[in-house]
């Protein structure tokens, strides 16, 4: 279980998250939806402490982090990040390493695995995302969809407890985003715990069991994804879903994050 409680985060005068609480069940996928600037990305980044909230609490595995406005201990950062993997909107592959090198990086540098073992694990993951034949390719030689699949393999390398996906399909053309959706759907079937911030209704509907709508830094509504998408309880949710349905066709990748 990953649990966020009363998370508050601001940038300067702007309060981006106003006491957000959220739980993700082990082995389930939660889609985090909401308009631009609603705080989805920020919330996601609070889970692996790329952003440090001012107040609230994060529980992940056996780790409980209480935010007090002071930066957390290095050891806390290390333990939390060991349990999380992240997929970025713009892939952020390491351009100076091959696909294989990207996936091996955490195993070699962070977990100090021997080279052969890391290579075997990385190849296995590249195979899982359908890119075993691209192991020696450089990121610059791969399509956007392929780069994002390598990024997913990289994020999974150290077997995180939860995979955080920040708009994983927003930078991709519809056809390319489909191959990424397929990979995420397969991971979901295998029981990978995921928290996905997305604009992509196709992705959310296909992959997530639960969905949470965030607006202006607050949770509007949360529950089973199928229900939220088809029978929203809140007027605001209904309105947002309506704009999304339109967005799938005409508005791909409109949100910067």
């Amino acid at each position: 279980m990953i649990r966020l409680a009363d998370i508050v985060k601001s940038f300067g005068d702007l309060t981006v998250l106003k006491g957000v609480s959220l739980a993700v069940r082990e082995g389930s996928v939660t889609a985090l939806i909401g308009p631009s600037g609603s705080g989805k990305s920020t919330l996601l980044r609070c889970v692996n402490l790329l952003e440090i909230p001012e107040a609230g609490q994060l529980v992940i595995g056996g780790e409980t982090v209480r935010f007090t406005g002071r930066p957390p201990e290095r050891e806390t950062l290390r333990r939390v990040r060991r349990q999380t993997g992240m997929v970025f909107q713009n892939f952020q592959l390491f351009p100076h390493r091959t696909a294989l090198g990207n996936v091996m990086e955490s195993l070699i540098v962070v977990l100090k695995w021997p080279e052969a073992k890391a290579r075997a694990r990385a190849l296995e993951l590249l195979d899982k995302v359908g890119l075993a034949d691209k192991a020696q390719a450089w990121p610059a030689q791969l399509s956007g969809g392929q780069q994002q699949r390598v990024a997913i393999a990289r994020a999974l390398a150290s077997s995180p407890r939860v995979l955080l996906c920040d708009e994983p399909t927003s930078a991709l053309d519809p056809e390319l985003s489909l191959e990424v959706v397929e990979v995420l759907a397969q991971l979901a079937r295998e029981g990978t715990t995921m928290l996905i911030a997305t604009h992509d209704l196709r992705l959310a509907a296909r992959v997530a069991q639960d969905a949470v709508l965030l607006e202006a830094g607050e949770v509007v509504e949360g529950g089973p994804a199928a229900e939220l998408f088809t029978r929203p309880r809140q007027e605001r949710t209904a309105r947002f879903i309506a704009t999304l349905g339109h967005g799938v066709v005409s508005d791909q990748g409109a949100e910067p994050g």
């Binding site: 992240m86 540098v109 990289r154």
Partner: peptide, 10 residues
């Protein structure tokens, strides 16, 4: 930097 931190690097 963020990608590096996200895979556990210091």
């Amino acid at each position: 930097w963020e990608a590096s931190y996200s895979i556990g690097m210091n």
